[in-house]
Amino acid sequence: MRQNKAVIAIFLMPAVLFFCLIFIYPIFRTGLMSFYEVENITSGMNEWKFSGLANYFKLADTSLFRISMWNLFRIWAVGGVAVMLIALFFAGILNSGIKAKKFFRAVIYMPNIISAVALATMWLQYVYNPRFGLFTTFFDAVGLTDFAKTQWTAPGNKFWAMLFAYCFGMVGYHMLIFSSGIEKISPEYYEAASIDGANKLAQFRQITLPLLTGVIKTNLTMWSITSVSFFTWSQLFSNVVSDVDTISPVVYLYNQVFSGGNVVTERNAGVGAAVGILMGICVVVVFLLINLLIRDDELEY
């Protein structure tokens, strides 16, 4: 027994050590930091000035941060609905008995393995390019010449252009999760329903959806976790240091703490810590809501 304990300790020690150094300690320190005024991010704790909830109030009072939260909400809600619907739709198609299922599945998932910087560059510099871009060329070719002149990445359009491109890349992952759920549903249900005269759509609504609650929860949770860290796309789609159109909370934090830029009126890393804590709270709240609203007893993936 004693030997077992030593073995367990040896086996677990490195992983747990990393876990404490990279997760536990920094999370607590970020939490603490968010209640202090911290002039320089490198300053030691003895230089911190306690300020209670001042950092949080300050954020609530900063219009740029409020805009970034609004953007994040739109990315999460609008993008979420779009991605979930398209992913579910494609997952349904994949499992309807079409040929070359594996090929379609592999191509649709493919954007997920590409660097977000490369993918965003492809969209920005090619698809949305006003001179030789895919959209301009395509709409010109089909005769929609006025529509072809749209400046896709001009202020006002830019946010939606970014979200559209981002969602295109995200569909594949969520489609795979939905698809794995659908594959686990016994085909006998569908056979019985077909005999009873239920069409494909009715089968989907009456059989597929109710049996997918587990995967729906997984998908919503994963979507929320990825949304909260929204950064790369926002940074690539903005031309100036803080582009109001596309700014996200993480970009706001990055500009506040790490890059100089003209937006920083006052250096206070405590505000940055408060942003981090707020993002963590977002994940927890969404997670609790998902588990409260979607009851799922029998299925887990």
């Binding site: 876990f19 997760f23 920094p26 970020t30 991010i41 993480v250 703490v257 790490f258 981090g276 994940v283």
Partner: peptide, 27 residues
């Protein structure tokens, strides 16, 4: 406890840990 901690860590956004990491590293 360790298993639950690891699962929870998978949902922790990097922004929650980046500031202390940066300050330790620069010190």
């Amino acid at each position: 406890l360790i298993q639950n901690g690891f699962v929870a860590a998978m949902g922790v956004p990097v922004v929650m840990i980046i500031l202390p990491l940066f300050s330790s590293v620069s010190r």
